[in-house]
Computed example of a mutant assay.
Amino acid sequence: MIYKGVLTKMQTEFLEPIQYYLVFENDFIHMNQLLNKEIGLKLVGHQCLSCGLDRPIFRQGFCRSCFFEQPVAGDWIMRPELSKAHLGQEDRDLEYEKRVQLQPHIVYLANSSNVKVGVTRKSQVPTRWIDQGAHEAIEIVEVPNRYLAGITEVALKDHVSDKTNWRNMLKNDVKDEDLIAWRDKLKSYIPDEVLSYYIEHNSETNIEFPVEHYPIKPKSLNLSKVDSYTGLLKGIKGQYLIFEDDTVFNVRANEGLVVELSV
Rank of each mutant, 00 (worst) to 15 (best):
M1I: 10
G5N: 00
V6N: 09
L7K: 03
T8R: 15
K9P: 04
F14N: 14
F14K: 04
E16G: 00
Q19K: 14
Y20A: 07
V23R: 15
V23D: 11
F24Q: 11
F24I: 12
I29N: 03
N32Q: 08
Q33N: 15
N36Y: 06
I39M: 03
K42C: 01
L43E: 03
L43P: 06
L43I: 07
H46S: 11
C51N: 02
C51P: 02
G52K: 09
L53F: 12
R55E: 10
G61K: 02
R64Q: 08
R64D: 02
S65D: 11
F67N: 05
E69T: 15
Q70T: 15
V72Y: 08
A73K: 03
A73M: 10
G74H: 00
W76A: 05
I77W: 09
M78I: 10
R79P: 01
R79Y: 12
R79C: 01
E81W: 14
K84R: 14
G88F: 13
Q89P: 03
D93M: 02
K98N: 09
K98R: 15
Q101I: 07
L102P: 00
P104D: 07
P104I: 05
V107D: 03
Y108A: 08
A110P: 00
A110D: 10
N114E: 15
K116E: 05
G118C: 07
G118I: 00
V119E: 00
T120E: 02
P126L: 06
P126T: 03
T127L: 14
R128V: 09
R128G: 05
R128N: 10
G133R: 04
H135M: 04
E136P: 01
E136T: 15
I138T: 04
E139Y: 05
E139G: 09
V143Q: 06
R146Y: 10
Y147K: 14
Y147G: 05
L148S: 06
G150I: 11
G150C: 06
V154K: 03
V154Y: 02
L156Y: 04
V160A: 01
D162R: 07
D162T: 02
N165R: 05
M169I: 10
L170A: 06
K171Q: 14
N172R: 11
D173P: 01
D173Q: 15
D176P: 08
E177A: 13
E177Y: 14
I180T: 11
I180L: 08
W182T: 04
W182P: 03
D184L: 09
S188A: 12
Y189C: 09
Y189M: 07
I190A: 13
P191T: 05
P191S: 12
D192G: 03
E193W: 08
V194Y: 06
V194H: 13
V194G: 07
Y197P: 02
E204H: 10
H213W: 02
L221E: 09
V226M: 13
V226C: 10
S228T: 10
T230E: 05
T230H: 02
I236M: 12
L241S: 05
D246H: 02
T247G: 07
A253G: 14
E255M: 09
V258C: 13
